[in-house]
Amino acid sequence: MGFTIGAISGLSGIREIRELRPGARRRERAQLCTRVAEYTSLWGWDLVPGARATRSGGRVVCSCGARACPSPGDHPLDASLEVPAGATVEEATRAWAAVPGAAMLLPTGRAFDVLEVAEHAALCALARLERMGVPLGPVAATPAGRAWFLVAPGAAAELPELLYRMGWDDADLDLRGRGEGQHITAPPSDLAGRGPVRWLRPPTLERAGRPPQARLLLGTLAYVCHRSSVVRPRTPDGPAAVR
């Protein structure tokens, strides 16, 4: 049907809009369910429906309904509605029908853990790691300027010991782990009303089920995070300064 907003007038235009909306909603739901099934069936990851958030006039409202939600748009809705790894499109459709519009959350500490750094540090680290030929898993970026490296499970618990062995335990690094009992927002879901999460390196059949060991990436990530913390951006008065 070809028309513009300016051409719509009167009740007939309203009826046309109403006729279009259900179809658009159905297509959106179908695309979402396909993505859910992609995560569970193709990549072999569990998926949990998450809350959504809206921002208006400086206020953030969470879809969970809690007035003082501590993590608006960034927490699971109901763990009992989890879609397990291996679920089909039909199973995903039935599960997501109970929570239409929910964000997609990936539990950490199961198929993978996460190493989180600033996105600008992640981009520098990715360039170095790719040049060195280090095997990499999926990497996602958030609208808040953070990046998530998916690594083998257990990395979050082992992170302090790994940093100690590499000599980075006393450095003030903007580097943290996410493991058992935590989650990340799956692309392209919205994170906390800020915008969609996106892939810097999307999952592949080869790496989705076999994320790399954290120790293979950690030295480079720690170095780049350290450099990012000691080098200040260039200012109008002169070049970058090093503390």
Rank of each mutant, 00 (worst) to 15 (best):
T88D: 03
W96E: 00
P212T: 07
A222R: 08
I14S: 15
G154S: 12
A97M: 05
D190P: 06
R27K: 13
M132A: 13
P72M: 12
I14V: 15
R52Q: 07
P72Y: 10
R26F: 07
P236K: 12
A51L: 05
R146C: 00
T142W: 01
V36Q: 01
R178Q: 15
L42E: 04
L126G: 00
T220A: 11
G65L: 02
R26L: 11
R194A: 11
D190K: 02
L218I: 01
T142F: 04
L200S: 03
M166D: 07
A186Y: 00
R210L: 09
E130Q: 15
G101V: 00
E158S: 14
A92H: 01
S41G: 12
T185F: 02
A97L: 06
L47P: 01
G13R: 02
T93I: 03
E90M: 06
E19P: 00
S9K: 10
L173S: 12
G154R: 11
W45P: 03
G86I: 00
L218C: 03
A53G: 08
E158V: 05
A144R: 15
S9R: 14
R55L: 08
T88W: 00
A214G: 04
A7C: 06
E90K: 04
A208C: 08
A95E: 01
C124D: 14
P70Y: 09
L77C: 11
V36Y: 03
R207E: 11
D113V: 12
L217H: 09
P160K: 12
L217F: 12
G101Y: 05
A51D: 06
P236Y: 11
D172K: 10
G6E: 14
G238F: 06
E91W: 05
A125C: 10
D74N: 15
A125W: 02
A147C: 10
G6C: 09
E180I: 07
A222H: 08
V151M: 04
V230A: 08
I17A: 14
R201G: 02
C33F: 01
L175H: 12
E119R: 11
L162Q: 15
P188K: 03
Y164S: 15
Q182S: 15
A85N: 06
A118M: 13
A192P: 07
V61C: 02
G179Q: 04
E158N: 13
S228V: 09
R94W: 02
R26T: 10
W199M: 00
T40M: 03
P84G: 05
V89F: 04
M132N: 08
S189Y: 00
S71F: 04
R29K: 13
L163H: 07
L163Y: 06
W43N: 00
A208S: 13
L216R: 14
R198L: 05
P187N: 05
F149I: 02
M1T: 12
V139I: 09
G133L: 02
A118H: 13
R210G: 06
P188Q: 02
V139C: 06
V224I: 14
E180A: 15
D169F: 13
R131D: 10
